[in-house]
Every structure is written in structure tokens, then in C-alpha cells.
């Protein structure tokens, strides 16, 4: 009995101590730990899923690597933490992860009420619907009275409800916690359609027995700008996350790739010199090594390379750049000047 009481005492003291300690900035914490802890999806091919050698691959994973490269000069100093769709924000709030790079939509209420901030949009997505070709449907508006499968997470359930309310149609919503069950129900014909972000639909289609049997309908029923998130009130860390992402975009604009980054160190272009740390000391302003930009590009390549490698037309997902092309190529990807 005495021992039990003592251990409870110790636990309570530990709890109180945990409550008071959190003064260090995120950058200090990350540096002291020697690695970045990055929250990613459970298993979403193209965005974050381990390959056959156990290495985490995907668009979101590469965003994590670029931040790690900016901080440590080594893109592999990342611990990937697969986060549940329901607990991802709590994982960030509690400090379990340093940054959340998990196909997370930047919305007003998340920004304003969850004690976190969002970095630049890394992927312009939107919710769509996918149906079997054999259904003979060419527009989401024809889907009234259909059963639609979805995951409970994010805002998908709300968006699809709003969509059908706007066209005054009824539908049956079947919600699954597990992505596998969600897919299985759709493939077996339990639902006529499945709804999710278009990028996610491409991922679901990629693992179907015969991907050509399914089509993604043309309607995009919501705006889903996916962005990395970090804890509020730590501007330095926010700057590091944001500028690591912008560095990827600026590199594509300037034609710097993973392959030619060493050559580009000798470039005459003053923008490129500043980005790669050949002149001026931009890195110091962020509390990073002066070659942070070089390190980011050296470890993952530029934005275009990250896109094509993970979700582009050459991959199973087969996504076109669309709104995710550079601003000067008709897209929305735009980095503020790095100077």
C-alpha cells in the first residue's frame, strides 16, 4: 500500500513538472534531439507510405525531408510518425510531432481555434468523386439517391452533404474508419461512388485491380489547399517550415535540380547565389546553416521533381500538375522572393 501511494505521488509530481516545462523553442528542441519528428499519413501511396525497403516515400514525406535538410543539412534525419486522422492535431498540439505534413486542408476554423498555424500550400487539391465506369455516370449531379462511401475524417462528409443539399438531392452516406474497409466496400459495389480529395482518389484508384475500370468525375466540390501545420506562437519555426517549402518552389522556377545543384553553386545569377548560400547570409537569419537552401535541394530536388517522383504522370497515381504548376506556367505555385 505504501509503495503504491509513493508511486502515485511520483506520477503526480511528474505530471506537474511536465505541465511547467515547455520553454524551449521548437528549433532548439529539434536540434537537441538530433532529428525532426514529422507527422504523416498512415499509408497513402504517393503521399506517405513505406516502400519495400521500409523507407518512407511520398510527397508529404519529402516535405518533411526538406525541413530536416534545412535544419540538419541531412534530409534523412527525420522520424516519421504515422498519425491518425482524428488525433493528428492533438499530436501536434502536445508536441509529440514538430510538424504535421499529412494532406491536411488549411481552413479558417483549424487555423483560428486549434492553436496551430499553416505553412504555404504545398498541394492544391479538391474533393471529387470516383465511380466505376460501368455505372455510366458522367457528372456528380447524376448521383442523387446513390450510396457514397467515405472516411469520417476531414471535412469530406460535410462537403458532400452540402453538395447534395445545394442540388436538393438525397443520398446515402456510408462512413468507414479504416481506409481499407472504405475501399473494399466501394470495389464490392456496396457504394456507387467514393468521395475524397482528388489526390487521394488517384491513390485509391492506383491500388484497384484494374484502375482503368474507374473514373474520377469532373466536379471538384470543395477547395482543399493542403499545407504543413506547426504549433502557433513560434514564428522562427514557422519561418523555417514555410521557407523550406518555398525554397523547393523557387528552385523549380530557377531551374535548380537535385542533379545540377552543385554546378549551380557557381551560377552568376544573384538569386541563385543567395538561395544556395554562395553569397549573403540568409540562413543565419533563420538560425540555420548558410547552405540550407543547397541542402534542401540536394536532398529532395525542387518542387517539380518532388511532384513528378511521387504523384506525377509517371507514377501509379498519374496526376497532372493542373493547379500545382508554377505560376508562370498557368498554375498557383508561387514563392515569395528569396532575398
Amino acid at each position: 500500500m505504501k509503495q503504491a501511494l509513493l508511486s502515485i505521488c511520483a506520477a503526480a509530481l511528474g505530471l506537474a513538472a511536465a505541465g511547467s516545462a515547455s520553454a524551449a523553442t521548437t528549433l532548439e528542441t529539434v536540434k537537441a534531439r538530433g532529428k525532426l519528428v514529422c507527422g504523416v499519413s498512415l499509408a497513402t501511396p504517393g503521399f506517405a507510405a513505406p516502400d519495400d525497403k521500409g523507407r518512407m516515400q511520398g510527397f508529404d514525406a519529402d516535405i518533411c525531408r526538406s525541413i530536416a535538410a534545412a535544419v540538419f543539412g541531412d534530409g534523412d534525419k527525420v522520424e516519421f510518425v504515422p498519425t491518425n486522422i482524428n488525433t493528428r492535431f492533438q499530436a501536434l498540439q502536445s508536441g509529440e510531432i514538430d510538424v504535421l505534413s499529412r494532406q491536411t486542408t488549411h481552413t479558417f476554423s483549424r487555423d483560428a481555434s486549434l492553436g496551430l498555424d499553416f505553412g504555404p500550400t504545398v498541394f492544391y487539391d479538391g474533393q471529387g468523386l470516383m465511380v466505376p465506369k460501368s455505372l455510366g455516370v458522367s457528372s456528380a449531379k447524376e448521383l442523387t439517391e446513390a450510396a457514397i462511401c467515405t472516411l469520417p475524417g476531414t471535412t469530406t462528409a460535410q462537403n458532400i452533404s452540402d453538395f447534395f443539399r445545394a442540388i436538393n438531392g438525397k443520398f446515402e452516406l456510408v462512413v468507414f474508419e479504416s481506409p481499407d474497409e472504405n475501399r473494399a466496400a466501394f470495389y464490392s459495389g456496396r457504394c456507387e461512388a467514393i468521395t475524397s480529395d482528388r489526390s487521394d482518389l488517384a491513390s485509391i484508384r492506383a491500388v484497384a485491380n484494374n484502375p482503368a475500370d474507374y473514373i474520377v468525375l469532373p466536379e471538384t466540390i470543395s477547395k482543399e489547399p493542403l499545407a504543413p501545420a506547426f504549433r502557433q506562437n513560434d514564428s522562427q519555426w514557422g519561418d523555417i517550415v514555410s521557407w523550406s517549402v518555398w525554397m523547393l518552389m523557387a528552385a523549380e522556377e530557377k531551374g535548380i535540380t537535385q542533379a545540377n545543384v552543385d554546378e549551380k553553386l557557381k551560377s552568376e545569377d544573384p538569386d541563385v547565389q543567395r538561395m544556395l548560400g554562395a553569397t549573403e547570409e540568409l540562413g543565419k537569419m533563420l538560425g540555420l546553416d548558410n547552405k540550407w537552401g543547397y541542402n534542401v535541394i540536394k536532398s529532395v530536388g525542387n518542387y517539380g521533381e518532388v511532384f513528378e517522383r511521387n504523384v506525377g504522370e509517371g507514377t501509379k497515381l498519374g496526376l497532372t500538375r493542373g493547379p500545382n504548376a508554377l505560376w508562370n506556367a498557368g498554375g498557383l505555385i508561387y514563392s515569395p522572393p528569396i532575398r
Binding site: N86, F89, S113, P152, G153, T154, Q158, V174, E177
Partner: peptide
């Protein structure tokens, strides 16, 4: 996929955070 208390709560949790 049966909408019991926990599932509805999860959806709510996601919307409100």
C-alpha cells in the same frame, strides 16, 4: 461503418477539432 456514438463523435471531432 455503422454510425454509433463513437463514429459520430469522431466526425464531430474532426470538424470542430
Amino acid at each position: 461503418g455503422y454510425p454509433d456514438l463513437v463514429m459520430v463523435s469522431n466526425t464531430v471531432m474532426n470538424q470542430t477539432g
